[in-house]
Amino acid sequence: MIEVTNVWKRFAAPVLRDVTLRVPGGCLYGLIGPGAAGKSVLLKCLAGLLRPERGTVQIFGETIGALDEVALQAVRNRIGMLFQNNALFDHLTVAENIAFPLRRRGLTDEAEIAARVADRLRAVSLPGFEERLPGGLSGGQKKRVGVARATVTRADVVLYDEPAAGLDPVTSQKIFDLLRREQQEAGATVVMVSSDIDRLLTVTDRVGMMLDGALIFEGTTAEAQGSLHPVVKQFVHGEVDGPL
């Protein structure tokens, strides 16, 4: 479903170095690693927001970097994404933000749109927030509205960048459980970046770990938890002593 092959990307310095990974269809893939490891950049390459200097990214069998604008938009219609900064549209209400992808995909039945918005808000424990503006929400509430928007279209591929950042532990676990449930019901392929390793590993099928722009580990969740690789072991178990 998602294939990344020998991808290189640099800004001032290399941020992705020869990254190769494969995410099978219907898999919830966790991408972990310390800050500035290249996780968010890799997600943006998957969404076609950044183009690698070398290597290829394939989604649904299409090579993202080789698509023209129209073909890329067709691929993006099948992708949902939650951004690290939530990326809610400031001038739209919560309901309009969540409904935005539905309307842009041609849904015009206002009753159905309202019902789907209300359903998403209930799922993220924010019922009744329809008319609020993003500026009046807390960081955690914005995050949950972002999750609602990313999941409202039931996309085939969903990319989450820190879906639980800024949330309390209980809400955080609820969000991870919700995302797992959604993914299983829709059969979606999900790539999720999170610093909340303990909770992330309760929902993932496979895990990749990045360090300094390179993918240094790739395997099942159980393999990650039992890995003897010193960096992976230290990071997954949150040990103070180690190479990191």
């Binding site: 943006k44 067709a74 219609n77 992708i79 690290q84 990326a87 549209f89 400031d90 842009r104």
Partner: peptide, 11 residues
């Protein structure tokens, strides 16, 4: 705040 990126991902 990545709102422009969000527009792009929404096709």
């Amino acid at each position: 705040t990545e709102q422009i990126d969000a527009l792009e991902t929404l096709a």
